[in-house]
Simulated scan of single mutants.
Amino acid sequence: MEADVCRCGWVNTDPLYIDYHDKEWGVPVHDDIRLFEMLTLEGAQAGLSWYTVLKKREHYRKAFDGFDPQQVAAYDEDKIAALLADPGLIRNRLKIRGTVTNAQAFLRVQEEFGSFDRYIWSFAGGAPVLNRWESLKEVPASTPESDAMSKALKKRGFTFVGTTICYAFMQATGMVMDHTTSCFRYFEVQETPAGTK
């Protein structure tokens, strides 16, 4: 970790975490598969730390068929039981069942709007909201936009989409730009083309 590089205060010294912060967090995501992945992982994080989930992400990708919502939506009881027995996952029955439920709801949104991307980005007005937080203390846990997203997703049958989870999802997928102003990524992310790393 370069001593002279200033990063957001939540980043620890693990190269995996640094890489996630430096290359992914806050970069606008418009790919439906990646959006489903992030929605799933943010839901899996409930009650835990993002670091815990991040360390398991590669295993989650394998276990959940690359987060293909079409495949996940079709999981039966045997598949759910196998996932619950998988030590590489967060073995919470509600979260794993919720992923299947969310995949089904996700497909319905895709069918109605043409893509999940088109639907979900409407909560940010279709473009990243650029914030100017000087310290982590200023960054909110939720906003009226994440409240609206949470309410709308719950109405459509999604689970593990409380307003705090929704705001974390918005931050991760670049719907809001919450790198602090002292972070070296603050200006870089604003110049990064959507969907790239």
Rank of each mutant, 00 (worst) to 15 (best):
M1K: 08
A3V: 05
D4G: 14
V5C: 13
N12V: 10
N12G: 13
T13L: 06
P15M: 07
H21L: 05
D22Q: 04
K23S: 13
E24Y: 14
W25D: 00
G26T: 11
V29F: 00
H30K: 12
D31H: 07
D31P: 10
R34A: 09
F36W: 09
F36A: 08
E37Y: 04
L41R: 06
L41H: 05
G43N: 03
G43Y: 03
Q45C: 09
A46S: 05
G47I: 00
S49Q: 07
T52V: 02
L54F: 02
K55S: 04
E58N: 04
D65W: 00
D65I: 00
F67E: 03
D68S: 09
D68C: 06
Q70P: 01
Q71I: 08
A74W: 01
I80P: 09
I80G: 05
A81L: 03
A81C: 04
L83M: 14
L83H: 13
A85G: 15
D86W: 01
D86Y: 04
D86K: 08
L89V: 01
L89K: 13
L89Y: 08
N92Q: 14
N92H: 15
R93E: 15
R93Q: 15
R97H: 15
T99G: 04
T99Q: 15
T99V: 15
V100H: 11
N102R: 07
Q104D: 12
A105G: 12
A105H: 05
L107M: 15
Q110I: 10
E111Y: 00
E112I: 11
G114R: 01
F116T: 06
F116A: 09
I120A: 13
F123Q: 03
F123G: 05
G125S: 13
G125V: 06
A127D: 07
P128Q: 02
P128H: 08
L130M: 11
L130A: 08
R132Q: 06
W133F: 14
E134C: 02
S135Y: 02
L136P: 03
V139M: 12
V139Y: 04
A141H: 08
S142E: 11
E145V: 02
E145C: 02
S146I: 01
D147H: 11
D147Q: 12
M149I: 03
G157L: 03
F158A: 11
T159S: 14
T163W: 00
T164N: 13
T164R: 13
I165E: 12
C166A: 14
A168Q: 06
Q171E: 15
M177W: 09
D178W: 04
T180F: 02
T180D: 00
T181C: 11
T181I: 13
C183F: 08
F187L: 10
E188N: 03
V189D: 00
Q190V: 03
E191N: 11
E191R: 14
G195S: 13
K197H: 12
